[in-house]
Protein backbone atom coordinates (compact mmCIF):
# COMPACT_ATOMS: atom_id res chain seq x y z
CA UNK A 1 0.00 0.00 0.00
CA UNK A 2 2.80 2.39 0.92
CA UNK A 3 4.66 1.34 -2.25
CA UNK A 4 1.63 2.14 -4.40
CA UNK A 5 1.24 5.52 -2.74
CA UNK A 6 4.94 6.26 -3.20
CA UNK A 7 5.05 5.34 -6.89
CA UNK A 8 2.09 7.55 -7.75
CA UNK A 9 3.35 10.46 -5.67
CA UNK A 10 6.81 10.17 -7.26
CA UNK A 11 5.22 10.15 -10.73
CA UNK A 12 2.96 13.13 -10.02
CA UNK A 13 5.85 15.01 -8.42
CA UNK A 14 8.00 14.52 -11.53
CA UNK A 15 5.22 15.85 -13.77
CA UNK A 16 4.62 18.90 -11.58
CA UNK A 17 8.29 19.75 -11.25
CA UNK A 18 8.68 19.41 -15.01
CA UNK A 19 5.78 21.82 -15.63
CA UNK A 20 7.05 24.28 -13.02
CA UNK A 21 10.67 24.00 -14.15
CA UNK A 22 9.70 24.58 -17.80
CA UNK A 23 8.53 28.09 -16.89
CA UNK A 24 12.15 29.16 -16.34
CA UNK A 25 13.99 26.57 -18.39
CA UNK A 26 14.89 24.35 -15.43
CA UNK A 27 13.34 21.04 -16.54
CA UNK A 28 16.66 19.26 -16.00
CA UNK A 29 16.24 19.59 -12.23
CA UNK A 30 13.37 17.07 -12.13
CA UNK A 31 15.48 14.15 -10.77
CA UNK A 32 17.14 16.37 -8.14
CA UNK A 33 13.92 17.79 -6.75
CA UNK A 34 12.05 14.47 -6.94
CA UNK A 35 14.65 12.67 -4.84
CA UNK A 36 14.87 15.56 -2.38
CA UNK A 37 11.10 15.83 -1.99
CA UNK A 38 10.62 12.09 -1.63
CA UNK A 39 13.42 11.34 0.84
CA UNK A 40 13.10 14.40 3.05
CA UNK A 41 9.36 14.98 3.06
CA UNK A 42 6.87 12.93 1.10
CA UNK A 43 8.23 9.44 1.84
CA UNK A 44 8.08 9.69 5.64
CA UNK A 45 4.97 11.87 5.81
CA UNK A 46 2.89 9.77 3.44
CA UNK A 47 4.01 6.51 5.04
CA UNK A 48 3.21 8.02 8.44
CA UNK A 49 -0.24 9.15 7.35
CA UNK A 50 -1.04 5.80 5.75
CA UNK A 51 0.07 3.90 8.84
CA UNK A 52 -1.78 6.34 11.12
CA UNK A 53 -4.96 5.20 9.37
CA UNK A 54 -4.17 1.52 9.61
CA UNK A 55 -1.94 0.91 12.60
CA UNK A 56 -3.01 3.63 15.03
CA UNK A 57 -6.67 2.72 14.58
CA UNK A 58 -5.83 -0.96 14.87
CA UNK A 59 -3.90 -0.51 18.12
CA UNK A 60 -6.65 1.71 19.57
CA UNK A 61 -9.31 -0.85 18.64
CA UNK A 62 -7.35 -3.80 20.03
CA UNK A 63 -6.42 -2.18 23.32
CA UNK A 64 -9.80 -0.42 23.57
CA UNK A 65 -11.61 -3.75 23.21
CA UNK A 66 -9.39 -5.20 25.90
CA UNK A 67 -10.20 -2.22 28.13
CA UNK A 68 -13.99 -2.38 27.76
CA UNK A 69 -14.05 -6.17 28.18
CA UNK A 70 -11.96 -5.76 31.36
CA UNK A 71 -9.05 -7.79 29.97
CA UNK A 72 -6.64 -5.03 31.02
CA UNK A 73 -8.01 -5.04 34.57
CA UNK A 74 -7.74 -8.85 34.56
CA UNK A 75 -4.12 -8.52 33.47
CA UNK A 76 -3.41 -6.21 36.39
CA UNK A 77 -5.00 -8.60 38.87
CA UNK A 78 -2.71 -11.31 37.46
CA UNK A 79 0.33 -9.17 38.38
CA UNK A 80 1.16 -8.39 34.77
CA UNK A 81 1.95 -4.81 33.83
CA UNK A 82 -0.31 -3.90 30.85
CA UNK A 83 2.22 -1.28 29.74
CA UNK A 84 5.02 -3.82 29.45
CA UNK A 85 2.82 -6.49 27.91
CA UNK A 86 0.57 -4.50 25.57
CA UNK A 87 2.00 -1.08 24.86
CA UNK A 88 5.81 -1.29 24.91
CA UNK A 89 6.07 -4.04 22.22
CA UNK A 90 3.75 -2.12 19.89
CA UNK A 91 5.67 1.14 20.32
CA UNK A 92 8.99 -0.61 19.77
CA UNK A 93 7.69 -2.41 16.67
CA UNK A 94 6.35 0.82 15.15
CA UNK A 95 9.56 2.76 15.84
CA UNK A 96 11.69 0.02 14.25
CA UNK A 97 9.54 -0.86 11.24
CA UNK A 98 8.44 2.54 9.96
CA UNK A 99 11.98 3.60 8.93
CA UNK A 100 12.31 0.33 6.97
CA UNK A 101 9.00 1.01 5.21
CA UNK A 102 10.03 4.59 4.48
CA UNK A 103 13.32 3.44 2.99
CA UNK A 104 11.32 1.21 0.64
CA UNK A 105 8.89 4.07 -0.09
CA UNK A 106 11.84 6.36 -0.93
CA UNK A 107 13.19 3.90 -3.50
CA UNK A 108 9.77 3.22 -5.02
CA UNK A 109 8.89 6.93 -5.08
CA UNK A 110 12.09 7.81 -6.92
CA UNK A 111 11.37 5.00 -9.36
CA UNK A 112 7.87 6.46 -9.92
CA UNK A 113 9.48 9.74 -10.94
CA UNK A 114 12.01 7.85 -13.07
CA UNK A 115 9.26 5.97 -14.95
CA UNK A 116 7.35 9.14 -15.82
CA UNK A 117 10.47 11.15 -16.63
CA UNK A 118 11.89 8.49 -18.97
CA UNK A 119 8.53 7.30 -20.32
CA UNK A 120 6.77 10.54 -21.13
CA UNK A 121 9.05 13.51 -20.44
CA UNK A 122 11.91 12.39 -22.66
CA UNK A 123 14.65 12.02 -20.01
CA UNK A 124 17.54 9.62 -20.54
CA UNK A 125 17.33 6.86 -17.91
CA UNK A 126 21.04 6.68 -17.15
CA UNK A 127 21.38 10.45 -16.85
CA UNK A 128 18.27 10.64 -14.64
CA UNK A 129 19.62 8.04 -12.21
CA UNK A 130 23.12 9.57 -12.21
CA UNK A 131 21.66 13.01 -11.39
CA UNK A 132 19.54 11.45 -8.65
CA UNK A 133 22.40 9.65 -6.92
CA UNK A 134 24.86 12.50 -7.34
CA UNK A 135 22.45 15.01 -5.87
CA UNK A 136 21.02 13.12 -2.89
CA UNK A 137 23.07 13.28 0.30
CA UNK A 138 23.10 10.83 3.17
CA UNK A 139 21.68 13.48 5.51
CA UNK A 140 18.55 13.74 3.31
CA UNK A 141 17.87 10.05 3.75
CA UNK A 142 18.77 10.15 7.46
CA UNK A 143 16.37 13.06 8.03
CA UNK A 144 13.57 11.00 6.46
CA UNK A 145 14.42 7.97 8.58
CA UNK A 146 14.56 10.01 11.79
CA UNK A 147 11.13 11.41 10.93
CA UNK A 148 9.87 7.90 10.26
CA UNK A 149 11.00 6.64 13.67
CA UNK A 150 9.35 9.60 15.41
CA UNK A 151 6.15 9.11 13.40
CA UNK A 152 6.15 5.42 14.33
CA UNK A 153 6.36 6.42 17.98
CA UNK A 154 3.49 8.89 17.58
CA UNK A 155 1.30 6.36 15.74
CA UNK A 156 1.74 3.62 18.35
CA UNK A 157 1.53 5.88 21.40
CA UNK A 158 -1.57 7.67 20.15
CA UNK A 159 -3.32 4.37 19.39
CA UNK A 160 -2.33 2.88 22.74
CA UNK A 161 -3.29 6.02 24.69
CA UNK A 162 -6.73 6.30 23.12
CA UNK A 163 -7.39 2.57 23.44
CA UNK A 164 -6.15 2.37 27.03
CA UNK A 165 -8.39 5.24 28.10
CA UNK A 166 -11.46 4.18 26.14
CA UNK A 167 -14.76 3.49 27.86
CA UNK A 168 -18.37 2.98 26.97
CA UNK A 169 -18.46 -0.34 25.13
CA UNK A 170 -18.34 -0.71 21.34
CA UNK A 171 -19.16 2.97 20.85
CA UNK A 172 -16.19 3.95 23.01
CA UNK A 173 -13.85 1.66 21.06
CA UNK A 174 -14.97 3.24 17.78
CA UNK A 175 -14.47 6.70 19.23
CA UNK A 176 -11.00 5.73 20.47
CA UNK A 177 -10.00 4.50 17.00
CA UNK A 178 -11.24 7.70 15.36
CA UNK A 179 -9.49 9.91 17.92
CA UNK A 180 -6.27 7.92 17.51
CA UNK A 181 -6.22 8.44 13.74
CA UNK A 182 -7.09 12.13 13.89
CA UNK A 183 -4.65 12.81 16.74
CA UNK A 184 -1.84 10.87 15.09
CA UNK A 185 -2.31 12.66 11.74
CA UNK A 186 -2.30 16.14 13.30
CA UNK A 187 0.72 15.31 15.47
CA UNK A 188 2.63 13.81 12.54
CA UNK A 189 2.14 16.95 10.45
CA UNK A 190 3.06 19.28 13.32
CA UNK A 191 6.11 17.26 14.39
CA UNK A 192 7.18 16.95 10.74
CA UNK A 193 7.46 20.73 10.55
CA UNK A 194 9.38 20.91 13.83
CA UNK A 195 11.90 18.22 12.80
CA UNK A 196 12.39 19.84 9.40
CA UNK A 197 12.90 23.26 10.99
CA UNK A 198 15.38 21.76 13.49
CA UNK A 199 17.43 20.08 10.76
CA UNK A 200 17.35 23.13 8.48
CA UNK A 201 18.67 25.34 11.26
Amino acid sequence: MIGLTAVFIGAALALNIYVGGARFNAEQFVPNIVVLGITRELGPVLAGLMLAGRVSAGIAAEIGTMRVTEQIDAMSTLSTDPFRFLIAPRVLAAVLTLPVLVLGADIIGVMGGYLVATGSLGFNGVVYLRNTFEFVESQDVILGLVKAAVFGFIIAVMGAYQGYNSSGGALGVGRAATNAVVGAIVLILAVNYLITAFFVE
Binding site: M66, T69, E70, Q71, D73, A74, M75, S76, T77, L78, S79, T80, D81
Partner: peptide, 29 residues
Amino acid sequence: EAAMRKFGMLFQGGALFDSLTVWENIAFR
Protein backbone atom coordinates in the same frame (compact mmCIF):
# COMPACT_ATOMS: atom_id res chain seq x y z
CA GLU B 1 1.15 -5.49 41.95
CA ALA B 2 2.53 -7.62 44.79
CA ALA B 3 -0.51 -6.78 46.95
CA MET B 4 -2.83 -7.85 44.11
CA ARG B 5 -1.44 -11.36 44.35
CA LYS B 6 -3.56 -11.71 47.49
CA PHE B 7 -6.70 -11.35 45.38
CA GLY B 8 -8.46 -13.37 42.76
CA MET B 9 -11.19 -11.74 40.73
CA LEU B 10 -13.80 -13.22 38.45
CA PHE B 11 -14.92 -10.50 36.06
CA GLN B 12 -18.53 -10.01 35.03
CA GLY B 13 -17.88 -10.73 31.37
CA GLY B 14 -15.22 -13.39 31.90
CA ALA B 15 -12.40 -11.09 30.71
CA LEU B 16 -10.67 -13.96 28.95
CA PHE B 17 -7.75 -12.97 26.75
CA ASP B 18 -9.25 -13.64 23.33
CA SER B 19 -5.87 -13.45 21.59
CA LEU B 20 -4.62 -16.41 23.64
CA THR B 21 -5.57 -20.07 23.64
CA VAL B 22 -7.53 -21.67 26.48
CA TRP B 23 -4.48 -23.17 28.12
CA GLU B 24 -2.56 -19.88 27.79
CA ASN B 25 -5.45 -18.16 29.58
CA ILE B 26 -5.22 -20.69 32.37
CA ALA B 27 -1.43 -20.49 32.55
CA PHE B 28 -1.33 -16.71 32.08
CA ARG B 29 0.05 -15.85 35.51
